[in-house]
Design a protein around this nucleic acid. Structure first.
Lengths: 185, 185
DNA sequence: TCGCACATGTAACGCGTTACATGATTAC
DNA sequence: GTAATCATGTAACGCGTTACATGTGCGA
């Protein structure tokens, strides 16, 4: 197994913000990159072990008062170099598998009601995501004014916001179409 | 290994349009669902074998004049029922892994030029996809007027078109932001 | 005759999730 | 006391791609 896969680069990216533990890496990913990148425990912890063995990160075990032990990982120069090199490479075409879209595409085999329900659920999820993204944007703009990462974080957020708004509009449009189809039966 | 996974459902969905060979299934997926679903050879052919063994599809070997042998798969009633049941279930949350977005998010570790190049490449790809989607839409509206699948295909296409248009707008906006950042150095 | 599109398949490998396993601290 | 959160890890399983393997028919 290769050490430097996308999981490793995602971890290095997070550690470029600040040194932290595996648990904190997961938390931060869930708060920031969740809409385009997540890692599970089963990927994260073994990856950190391997990355330490190959000196992309170092590790210090910390024990604050009244808290259990934590392994704080810090990116090494070797790790930072690897991250930079990866960033320069053109991103691979990402594999998109969207089960919702697949079901919509084959919707002629189901009832209009079924498809409508799926669309409504998608709309509901989109609204929640949009709210969360806008919230994060406000917080960042208030608290991270001098953070070098800020412009990139805002660009990522705007991508999510604009995409989600478009999805909402599309959901409304599709809802109308499906309702018309239903009446036409 | 389970026979009825998402690959199987995607195949059943395609076979709900018409009976066809494995090769034709791949081709049709590349023309229609490519933007939200693809299968590779290594998934497709073994899946078809298993689906036939469990009677979700039947198979007839065909040999047209001046062409090599083809295995034409047809969905059985059992297959159609399985497809319908699957369509009724709420779609699973799909895992989105977007390497481009990940690189943008960590852009502070690279030069503005590098990120700009990635954005320009993304914009270029988006334009190509948009052109292809609009083309397909025109063709469908002209040739498949009486196809029961048409409304669902158009909804899927519109999703792609609107999302891609939003992406283009976002790319232009980000290009401006990155150019400004560059000047600010 | 050479390369491309058609056509079907297998094997190896790595990706990624889920469930399991453990145990501490904190708040109710 | 008990549930939630913090915290780290492993094992089993299925997903999915890539490379390999093979062969036909057609057009330049």
């Amino acid at each position: 197994m290769k050490t430097l896969n996308n999981t490793a680069y995602a971890i290095l990216g997070i550690l470029s913000i600040a040194p932290m533990s595996g648990y904190e890496i997961r938390q931060l990913m869930q708060e920031s990159t969740a809409n385009f990148w997540v890692e599970s425990d089963g990927q994260l912890y073994p990856a950190l072990t391997k990355m330490m063995a190959e000196h992309y990160v170092t590790c210090k075990t910390e024990k604050s008062a009244g808290a259990r032990e934590k392994k704080i990982y810090t990116m090494t120069d070797k790790g930072h170099l690897a991250l930079k090199k990866w960033l320069q490479q053109a991103p691979n075409k990402n594999i998109i598998r969207n089960e919702f879209m697949l079901k919509l595409f084959f919707g002629a085999n189901a009832s209009h009601e079924t498809t409508l329900e799926h669309v409504q659920a998608e709309r509901y999820r989109a609204k929640a995501i949009l709210w969360q993204l806008k919230n994060t944007k406000n917080q960042l703009e208030a608290n991270d004014k001098n953070n070098a990462h800020l412009p990139y974080w805002l660009m990522s957020l705007d991508y999510g916001i604009q995409m989600t708004e478009t999805k909402l509009t599309w959901c409304d449009h599709v809802t109308k179409t499906l309702t018309t189809l239903k009446r036409g039966d």
